[in-house]
Write a protein that binds this DNA or RNA. Structure first.
Length: 425
RNA sequence: GGAGGGGUGGCCGAGCGGACGAUGGCGGCGGUCUUGAAAACCGCUGAGGUGCAAGCCUCCGUGGGUUCGAAUCCCACCCCCUCCGCCA
């Protein structure tokens, strides 16, 4: 959620910025008009309430001193004031609701450094790492997986439906190994704290990170209990500090967590349906940062490096792209995607997305910090990034490390997590 | 799932219809005293809105209701605790 204050201070700048994301700017003018009206109404309602409060104090005094006639007269007058106050607050509430509603339609303006562009195909490549295998020099991961008995897509579909994967044997152990490897890496090398959150959240949490109301259709819902299966660990982890004021000394707060991620992928029917490229449940280790505002763009670079190191440790050639204006998410000010090369399917696979949300989420969640005991609380900046998402990482890993003899080489860094296994065969 | 108890400021805890944004204690900050510290003593110490400011307004789990007036009474919901049942 954007600050109303920012719209008042610089309406034209905000309009220009959100246009870069391809959002229509007229909502800004509508909001400013409603805001002016609200402040007017509030001033009047305020005066009325002040009158009522003062009158009530006076009435209490009259009753205590037994001045009955005066008390009755005042009481009658105050009853009328109360009716007026009620009418006023009713009108106020309507206008506040409309402001609240419109405010949620305004995206986070992209940072000045974000490149122009309409969509993902225009994202500039900022870094590329590793020597990628020629397209076709490998095999699609579903062939490798089936041959080596690593996962069973048909039985996964039998259990839960198409897009749900049953990992088997070494494939199952590989899931566990990757989760452990990623958490340990960020814990031991990058200084993150580990948490293990609930894998479902309530509506307030889903609202906090912006899954509700915008992306409701993407989540699996447990209607009976009012719970949502998490689409990413970002949701429970960022919400840990919802409605709290953190001591400045706690910042930056770096947290790493594993969760399964459930996504309905509504609207993506027919896209990437084979193999592990687009599934309804995948495992992901996520990094979340709560930081001081002036450091958030530096922290984004650091976060992105932390994710990149995870890919490099798996010896997977990848590239880092910066999301252009048209591809930066609604709630984000700036972000990078990490794309691993999958030579079997001949595609770059998005295996991490690292973003700075500035104060857009923290305003919604009311997460603040306080510098000194007498300072006003300020909103933190929130960031998150995958480190990494498993299903696609597994796809890239199988296709990249496939050997001529049909086995898959296990990258050295992963071996301790697989009981020393050097090759899957 | 059943029965009871409870949600008040950073924490503990009082208030149970009018002078209460809320006594008191702890913690924190500032000061006096001290060579320094501790102790003692004094003062300050919730968040938000609006305003140049004084101030005014809102918030006592959440939402409704009763009343001229609600932290206080009524209803619903949420959360926590205790006991019983069930259970990995």
């Amino acid at each position: 959620m954007i600050a109303l204050q920012r719209l008042r201070d610089d309406p034209d700048g905000v309009k220009r910025d959100i246009a870069r994301k391809g959002e229509p700017p007229d909502v800004v003018d509508r909001l400013l008009a409603a805001d002016a009206r609200r402040r007017e109404l509030e001033a009047t309602a305020n005066e009325l309430r002040a009158r009522r409060n003062a009158g009530n104090r006076q009435l209490g005094e009259l009753i205590r001193t037994q001045r009955r006639a005066e008390a009755e007269a005042l009481k009658a007058e105050l009853a009328n004031v109360s009716i007026e106050v009620d009418a006023m607050t009713g009108g106020l509430r309507d206008i506040e609701e409309s402001i609240e509603h419109d405010l949620l339609l305004v995206p986070n303006p992209p940072h000045a450094s974000v490149p122009d562009g309409r969509g993902a195909e225009e994202n500039p490549v900022v870094r590329e790492w590793g020597e990628r295998r020629a397209e076709g020099s490998s095999a699609p991961h579903w062939e490798i997986g089936e041959r080596l008995g690593l996962f069973d897509l048909e039985r996964g579909a039998k259990l839960a439906g198409s897009g749900f994967v049953l990992y088997t044997g070494v494939g199952a152990r590989l899931q566990r190994a990757l989760i452990g490897f990623f958490i340990d890496l960020h814990l031991e090398r990058h200084g993150y704290r580990e948490v293990w959150p609930p894998f479902v959240v309530n509506a307030a949490s889903a609202r906090g990170t912006g899954q509700l109301p915008d992306k409701e259709g993407q989540m699996y819902v447990v209607e009976r209990d009012g719970l949502y299966l998490v689409p990413t660990a970002e949701v429970p982890v960022t919400n840990i500090y919802r409605d709290e004021i953190l001591p400045a000394g706690e910042l930056p707060l770096n947290v790493v967590a594993y969760t399964p991620c459930w996504r309905r992928e509504a609207g993506a029917a027919g896209r990437d349906t084979r193999g592990l490229l687009r599934v309804h449940q995948f495992e992901k280790v996520e990094m979340v940062k709560l930081v001081r505002p002036e450091t958030s763009y530096d922290e984004l670079e650091r976060l992105t490096r932390d994710a990149e190191e995870a890919v490099e440790a798996l010896e997977l050639p990848y590239r880092t792209v910066e999301r252009c204006g048209g591809d930066v998410g609604f709630a984000q000010a700036k972000g990078y995607d990490l794309e691993a090369w999958a030579p079997g399917v001949g595609k770059w696979l998005e295996i991490s997305s690292c973003s700075n949300y500035t104060d857009f989420q923290s305003r919604r969640m009311n997460i603040r910090y306080r510098d000194t005991a007498d300072a006003r609380p300020e909103l933190v900046h929130t960031l998150n990034g995958s480190g990494l998402a498993l299903a696609r990482t597994v796809a890239a890993l199988l296709e990249t490390h496939l050997q001529p003899d049909g086995s898959v080489r296990v990258p050295a860094a992963l071996r301790p997590h697989l009981g020393g296994l050097e090759a899957i065969r």
